[in-house]
């Protein structure tokens, strides 16, 4: 993995090159399977005839997904980096493009450009406690990291997942969450903003789950993905507990039209979220993160 000097003098640890030969041109992928996760969220499995080996990717990276004639949007890869033959995306239908993508059936095709962007710090976290905090659809980009953490479970100390959804019916990957919870050495806590009847679990914001897990602030890596406001409060909470900004990682969302640093839309201060992110070490973007309208 090349280690390059960031232009602001901070280290940039991640590879950003897509493994597709032509970064501008969507490669057709065929939809093999679809699964309805919640009332508005679907997981798709895709394969490409021209690339039977699939797309090598790192946990945290995203693709630009194209629905024929409708448009293209950034979507994180939610599958297992150890099984790249199948490309897995989890999409929440919120507008025209994500609705078109969510509506595909097996046999349909989507265009794929990528993978783009930076990865979760799984290497950096070796030997540490790891706390993964997800809000809403933010669990999708973190799932590849969880797969890797579980696969190399013994190389990490304590591992915890804190997940917050709006309501019980918005919880993603329900069955898998149950399985993860039963794994020895993985501490899973789920909460919802608004409980409904029959929900016997936690109610409240995800930050309220932090006291439930044990970690050593001096040797913990935190990975956070969710709405910006949720990430802000989560980061503050971990900082209060003594986790340094250098050990907290967040994944940012910005409007993206190209994914490769040409269109300018994804800028945040000196960074292009598409190639310097989406995963950032919090200490790196601290001065720009959370500023109004930055």
């Amino acid at each position: 993995m090349p280690v390059r000097e960031d232009k602001r003098g901070q280290e940039r640890v991640w590879e950003t090159r897509g493994s597709l030969p032509e970064p501008m041109l969507p490669l057709p992928f065929t939809v093999r399977k679809t699964r309805k996760e919640t009332h508005d969220t679907y997981t798709l499995e895709l394969q490409s005839e021209s690339r039977p080996g699939g797309l090598a990717f790192a946990a945290g990276q995203f693709n630009m997904l194209y629905a024929f004639g409708v448009g293209e949007v950034p979507v994180s890869i939610s599958g297992d980096p150890a099984a790249p033959e199948v490309l897995v995306h989890t999409v929440r239908a919120v507008g025209p493009v994500t609705r078109a993508i969510s509506g595909v059936k097996p046999g349909d095709m989507l265009g794929v450009r990528g993978p783009f962007g930076t990865r979760w710090p799984l290497e950096d976290a070796l030997g540490s406690d790891v706390v993964v905090v997800a809000g809403g659809i933010g669990l999708a980009p973190l799932r590849p990291a969880l797969y890797q953490l579980f696969r190399r479970r013994r190389d990490y100390k304590r591992v915890a997942l804190l997940y917050g959804a709006r309501s019980p019916r918005d919880i993603l990957y329900r069955r898998e969450l149950g399985r993860w919870d039963k794994r020895p050495g993985v501490d899973v806590h789920v909460t919802v903003d608004h409980a409904t009847e029959g929900w016997g679990g936690n109610e409240g914001v995800v930050t309220a789950l932090i006291p439930k897990v044990e970690f050593d602030p001096a040797a913990t890596v935190v990975m956070v993905c969710g709405p910006e406001i949720m990430m802000r409060f989560t980061v503050i909470e971990f900082q209060k507990r003594g986790v340094p900004s250098e050990k907290i990682y967040i994944s940012m969302e910005r409007n993206m039209q190209c994914g490769i640093g040409f269109c300018g839309h994804c800028q945040l201060g000196p960074y292009f979220v598409c190639k310097d992110g989406p995963v950032f070490r919090f200490g790196t973007i601290e001065t720009f993160f959370g500023r109004r309208e930055m």
């Binding site: 024929f68 004639g69 293209e72 039209q257 190209c258 300018g264 839309h265």
Partner: peptide, 22 residues
């Protein structure tokens, strides 16, 4: 800076991507 626009013909048989100054 640019934006892209994905367009199709009326029949939806062909599509193209145009990039324009934004």
């Amino acid at each position: 800076c640019t934006a892209v626009e994905d367009v199709t013909d009326l029949a939806g048989e062909t599509a193209e991507r145009r990039r324009h100054w934004d």
